[in-house]
């Protein structure tokens, strides 16, 4: 197989991992209408949780995630219900994108990242798990990738489908959609708005913890990974259309493809610059993202 096709395959695999990280952020934005700037920090925190579990008890992240993801659901739920709720109520006049919550999450991001930097120092750690060490080979060994990346790619669709199913096909999802469309009208119909927000936030962070399991087994674990993936996941979510789950997948795939395919022709750092440039152009030409619907006030 020729190099370009291989690069496209690598791009799709990487894009799957990016989408997996971004999809939780998209849910949180779509429902609660806040950009959670602490997304990257939480990803990093979950990666360290997997690191601890792996080094101390030798639990593979892909098994540990069945414990960590529910724990992160609770963390996200409480963060929304206890900490962010008063800020949202204070700004109830402005339904769209309250700024103090954004500032709060920026502060939270800074605090978490630097707390972990204090505890774990900036040294990189790798989790030498089975899926990190072993490689998936196809097409006469011309396409080689870590199993963890392949699992991340598959998980991306599982998680996205799960979230889509919860939001579109269940009773709970009906409430979530009602709240995301019009908070006040939903409250008048008897929906407990802030519990629903909490559940949506929890779902987003649980999805993030699943992404953390994948990321910690194919990438390095260090306090700065939050920044690396956090910034990218904002870009991906906006690129695909904020609040759209398929949009997050499309955005992630585009990022992955740009980085891998462009890296065939230009240095890989320039390729990641290209993805930021594409993001800026899309944002300016089509601020609602590729698959986003225009939101009316």
């Amino acid at each position: 197989m020729n190099n370009i096709l291989i690069a496209i395959l690598h791009g799709l695999i990487l894009g799957g991992a990016y989408s997996l990280i971004a999809v939780g952020l998209s849910v949180i934005f779509g429902v609660v209408r806040i950009i959670n700037f602490s997304h990257g920090a939480m990803l990093m925190a979950s990666a360290f949780a997997y690191y601890e579990l792996f080094t101390r008890f030798n639990v593979d992240p892909f098994f540990a995630m069945f414990v960590i993801a529910p724990a992160f659901f609770i963390i996200g739920f409480l963060l929304q219900k206890v900490v962010i709720r008063p800020l949202l109520i204070r700004e109830s006049a402005s339904v769209l994108e309250p700024t103090s919550v954004m500032l709060f999450t920026i502060g939270l991001d800074y605090a978490i990242c630097n707390l972990y930097l204090m505890i774990y120092t900036s040294r990189y750690k790798t989790l030498n798990t089975w899926s990190y060490k072993n490689y998936f080979r196809a097409f006469d060994n011309s396409f080689v990738t870590q199993y963890s990346r392949l699992i991340a790619f598959l998980l991306c669709f599982v998680v996205a489908f799960g979230l889509w199913f919860i939001i579109n096909k269940t009773e709970l999802g009906k409430r979530i959609r009602a709240v995301s469309q019009n908070r006040d009208a939903a409250a008048l119909c008897g929906v407990d708005v802030h519990t629903t927000y909490g559940i949506a936030f929890g779902l987003g962070t649980a999805a993030l913890a699943i992404a953390g399991a994948a990321m910690s087994s194919f990438y390095l674990v260090s306090p700065s990974v939050g920044n690396v993936f956090g910034t990218k996941s904002f870009m991906i979510v906006v690129l695909g259309g904020l609040g759209s789950i398929p949009g997050a997948i499309v955005g992630g795939m585009i990022f992955g493809l740009i980085e891998q395919v462009a890296a065939q022709f230009i240095p890989s750092t320039m390729a990641s610059m290209l993805s930021f440039a594409v993001f800026l152009v899309v944002l300016i030409l089509k601020p609602d993202g590729l698959l986003g619907r225009r939101k009316r006030k």
């Binding site: 800020l87 709060f104 800074y110 605090a111 978490i112 630097n114 972990y116 930097l117």
Partner: peptide
């Protein structure tokens, strides 16, 4: 020893101020 301490402080103060 604790290289992130000063920025950690910025983050915590920011959260308290927002609140």
């Amino acid at each position: 020893q604790m290289s992130g301490l000063n920025l950690f402080l910025y983050g915590v103060v920011m959260m308290l101020v927002v609140y």
